[in-house]
Design a protein around this nucleic acid. Structure first.
Lengths: 192, 192
DNA sequence: GACGATCTACCTACCAATAGGTAGACAGAG
DNA sequence: CTCTGTCTACCTATTGGTAGGTAGATCGTC
């Protein structure tokens, strides 16, 4: 049970999809108002400023991501399978177009222009993601499952780049399948 | 020699660095006017609308890119070295912070919110890049230089994802070295 | 159970600043 | 004289944000 009213949830969900489409400066309170069916001013009741709104949005996103990592860890004993499940999760989001881009990846691309409170939150997501991926590669390496080309750290960074670059390619080339093709082919190479 | 006046060049250069920082909606004519030292209205003399400005910008970027690919093809006989030079070019741009992100990669991330004429131009860049990379992998594979995991097409897509994802990671983690680490480690795996 | 007090979520009606864009004057160069 | 590049001055729409008000739910207190 969330502590947020359903309207606040609606606003967040709407803002999220608008950010995924066009970034921080790609939407306005008026856009949200039109979709949610509320007046512009009412949004300020829930989120005093745009920075508040987006900071909250990213904080919740990070919470969900952390919960997702815990879920993935439970989803399989094999870290390779965990990574495959992670990629499969995004593949599904992209193919169904339900959530075709990582909010933080999109915001990160415009980091220099982001209000500092939002920028800080976005950077934290990358830390969390990098740490989780690194731990997965460490476990895979220690158990002899992976044939790593470098340190677990380096492999994690490579995989992260593949994932975010794959999202971009799928979008730019208007081919949702591309993401899965790219991530799967890379993960297949890991098998030792 | 360009057919554009030096002021037009200044405007384009300024717009470019502003786009690299914050995307299409991350800058205004007023921002450019302040930097170039000209009045807002004067920009409209050179570029009637913002769409004109950015479309022209991306067109010139694509020309430069195509010239760059030709240059890379001349830079080495070995396609692996050509790819390494391509990555090294971006590594330099990122470390020197002279041009720390690909304009088209940034614009592609906000593709759904881009004015259609700009969006079309951005997509064309991805086609060009994908085609050039594919040809490099084809040549490398045909000459027995590479040990490819998949088709040259697929390898090209993977490399492109690595490059764009690497740019994003370098930015998000505020670590310019990251880009080179990621791309180099992947290219090293190619050696057969 | 009735009373006012407070709180929540929304509203209308504003605001100053900024967005992209236009009209027309003017100075200098060919 | 004309053409290019710039200017001042202006326009309309939109931006994020505020002020003040209101209907209705919830509260403690008697």
């Amino acid at each position: 049970m969330s502590t947020l009213s359903s309207t606040a949830d609606d606003i967040l969900a709407c803002a999220r999809s608008l950010i995924i489409a066009g970034g921080y400066n790609g939407f306005s309170y008026a856009d949200i108002a039109a979709v949610v069916g509320i007046r512009k001013a009412s949004i300020h009741h829930h989120f005093p400023s745009k920075v508040d709104l987006v900071r909250t949005l990213v904080q919740l996103y990070r919470e969900d991501a952390r919960a997702g990592f815990a879920e993935l860890a439970r989803s399989a004993a094999d870290p390779r399978e965990q990574l495959a499940n992670y990629a499969a999760y995004w593949e599904k989001c992209i193919i169904e177009a339900s959530d075709p881009f990582c909010v933080c990846a999109l915001l990160a691309s415009e980091l220099p222009a982001l209000p500092p409170p939002v920028a800080a939150e976005v950077r934290l997501h990358f830390e969390t993601l990098s740490a989780w991926l690194t731990s997965a590669f460490e476990r895979g390496s220690a158990s002899g499952l992976f044939r790593l080309a470098g340190t677990p750290q380096a492999e994690a960074e490579t995989f992260m780049a593949i994932v975010h670059g794959g999202m971009l390619s799928a979008r730019a080339q208007d081919d949702p399948r591309l993401f899965g093709d790219i991530t799967r082919s890379w993960l297949n190479r890991l098998a030792s």
